[in-house]
């Protein structure tokens, strides 16, 4: 993933939220991005996710220049290749734990196939056969990921996600980000709602699992202390006097 001298100004704002930012993340690598509020964190994530188009510069993910894709194709690209974990409220309240994880497969054929262990290049007839046993196999895969993230069988079977603890919710969100093996995980302050002991455990799991999946991890936080866990870090500095997200 590559950002090359990217700038973005929100409509109506008189200063850019991001000004001339460049960064690079190789596959399987972990990168810490430090930034408090108003440093353009959300803008950065939205640019990489393809929800915004930079005013200047270029965003390339997996060798694909996002500007070359239509809005719909960027949404599909995001579904196929990027998993997100946010600060909180990661889960859809009316879906069960497993269905929340499987949400990532609903919008991406590629991640669905990969979660099934299917070969995306296989002929359609084979893929159809896989799809038939699909739902059951998908649930198994979601269960496997949730178990790896140390969620007990009792938690995994919950129909209501709203009564999970925040730490449990965040781990469900990680399982969703990981399922179907996207190339890039973007974590936006995923630990700020956790207490210190839960935070370290969570980070460890996040690192382990994204490494096991071979995904690059882009970790955005205002918390300096976390930078020590990463081989590389980058500062996003607030443009003077600007207080935007």
């Amino acid at each position: 993933m590559l950002l090359d001298r990217v700038s973005y100004t929100w409509p109506g704002a008189n200063r850019p939220a991001l000004d001339d930012v460049s960064l690079r993340l190789d596959s399987g690598e972990r990168l810490f991005i430090r930034g408090g509020s108003g440093t353009g964190k959300t803008t950065l994530i939205s640019l990489i996710g393809g929800l915004l188009q930079p005013a200047a510069g270029r965003v390339t993910v997996l060798g694909q220049d996002l500007a070359a894709l239509s809005a719909g194709a960027r949404d599909r690209f995001r579904a196929d290749h990027i998993g997100f974990v946010f600060q909180m409220f990661n889960l859809v309240p009316y879906l069960s734990v497993v269905d929340n994880v499987l949400l990532a497969c609903r919008f991406s054929r590629r991640r669905r196939d990969r979660a099934l262990g299917a070969d995306p290049s296989a002929p359609d007839s084979d893929r159809h056969a896989q799809a038939v046993r699909g739902r059951h196999a998908l649930i198994e895969e979601a269960e496997r990921l949730l178990a790896r993230l140390q969620l007990s069988a009792a938690v995994r079977a919950r129909r209501q996600v709203t009564d999970l603890s925040v730490g449990q919710q965040q781990r469900v969100a990680v399982a969703r980000a990981l399922i179907g093996g996207p190339a890039l995980i973007i974590a936006d302050e995923p630990t700020s709602a956790l207490d210190a002991s839960a935070r370290d455990g969570f980070l460890e799991l996040l690192f382990e699992e994204s490494a096991a999946a071979g995904a690059g991890l882009l970790f955005v936080s205002h918390d300096e202390a976390l930078a020590a866990h990463f081989p590389r870090s980058l500062d996003l500095r607030a443009p003077d006097g600007e207080d935007s997200c």
Partner: peptide, 10 residues
């Protein structure tokens, strides 16, 4: 959340 997992505005 739906947008983040790839839902289009449509």
């Amino acid at each position: 959340i739906l947008r983040s997992v790839g839902a289009r505005p449509m």
